[in-house]
Simulated scan of single mutants.
Amino acid sequence: LPSHPAGEVLTSNDARWSFARRRPAGVVSVIAPFNFPLILSIRSVAPALALGNTVLLKPDPRTAVCGGVALMRVFEEAGLPAGALSLLPGGAETGAAVVEAPEVRVISFTGSTAAGRRVGEAAARHLKRAHLELGGNNALIVLPGADVAKAASAGAFGSFMHQGQICMTTGRHLVHESLYDAYVAALSEKAAQLPVGDPASGTVALGPIIDESQLKRIHAIVEDALQAGARLTAGGTHDGLFYQPTVLSELSQENPAFAEEIFGPVAPVIKFSTLDEAVELVNANEYGLSVGILGDVGTAMDLADRVHSGKVHINEQTVMDEANAPFGGVGASGTGSRFGGATANIEAFTEVQWLTMRPQIAPYPF
């Protein structure tokens, strides 16, 4: 980004040079979440600095060291000038302060949709730009004819990776009725075999949930789902903060486990009979971050044109991120692709200035 073209030469009706150039926005506040504290901080901190801004970083208070102090030390060792990057750990009051401070011009927020709405409202009152990357209840569509074993492997990774504590986690498995029973059985078998425990103790697939409050929320949604008629085919239990990979089947669209973002290792599976029904199930949810489609590529391409989602991955699950790819969602998942790649980052962290130049002072009729 420091060496990327910072504007363009425009045509003009007058005898002058005309430019549209990108200028640093000023001070950028980065508010990062707990779940991937290093990458979800650096993906805003690095481009904002590279484009000439100063940055105020507020990590989640639960991950203030790995999401804040560690980054500060790296940049200090690299020789970043003092004051270019500042760290301000804290809770909700601190978050409000780094949004409302008059010195701040741009806010880059990653977190829950509820918190993002408050950030967006506060930023709007102060006429500031807020780039909001929020939650997701992402759908994985398994088309008729798909390889069930490979699909279940993709689905297990999408739902259980990092204990489901990812905005891109597969929160809804939409499986064609011809494969439904086989898919539920295969996914449940995988869930039952995945080792859960302290990652420091050996090779495990799932570690702990972030804290007791989040664990209680996950378990409450699972219990509510069962009360609403879902069937438990794997998991549903926990030992301390270690929650077992959980599979729920026989859900309705209104079931809380299908309708809400769980942010835990829970895989709700629902069947569909037609492609139109699959599209309706995807689009009926307020979130629109990531969709995976497994099976026939031609059919998947048609579906990709019809689903409301910031990202679509054909024959891959929903958890996907690359530094040079635009990242973001629609609807309750945020305000668009504001991270990744030169175009998105430059738009996020700079202001456009129109600049004209003449060789002499222009003549005027007054």
Rank of each mutant, 00 (worst) to 15 (best):
Q360G: 02
N283Y: 12
S41Y: 04
I262Q: 07
D276I: 14
I314V: 10
L40M: 08
S108G: 12
V69F: 11
I221L: 06
A25C: 03
E322K: 03
N35G: 03
R129D: 01
A48E: 14
V175F: 01
P208C: 07
V279N: 05
L194H: 05
G235P: 09
M168L: 14
T356L: 10
D14M: 11
N345K: 08
T350N: 00
E76L: 12
A130G: 00
V9I: 13
L241A: 01
Y364F: 09
P33C: 05
L38V: 10
A259D: 13
A48N: 14
F366V: 01
D239P: 02
A186V: 02
F258S: 01
V291M: 00
T299I: 13
L140Q: 08
A192C: 03
G336W: 10
V55C: 09
G26P: 13
P359R: 15
L1G: 04
F75E: 02
V312K: 03
I361W: 07
A92S: 10
L1N: 01
D147E: 06
F36V: 08
S29K: 04
W17I: 11
V297W: 08
P195L: 05
E103Y: 10
Q253W: 05
N138T: 03
L226G: 08
A78M: 05
Q227Y: 10
L134R: 02
T356A: 11
V142F: 03
A139C: 13
V28D: 05
E103M: 14
A284G: 15
A220D: 11
F19E: 10
C66L: 07
L294W: 12
K190R: 15
S108V: 11
E212F: 09
T274W: 06
K190L: 15
G120F: 07
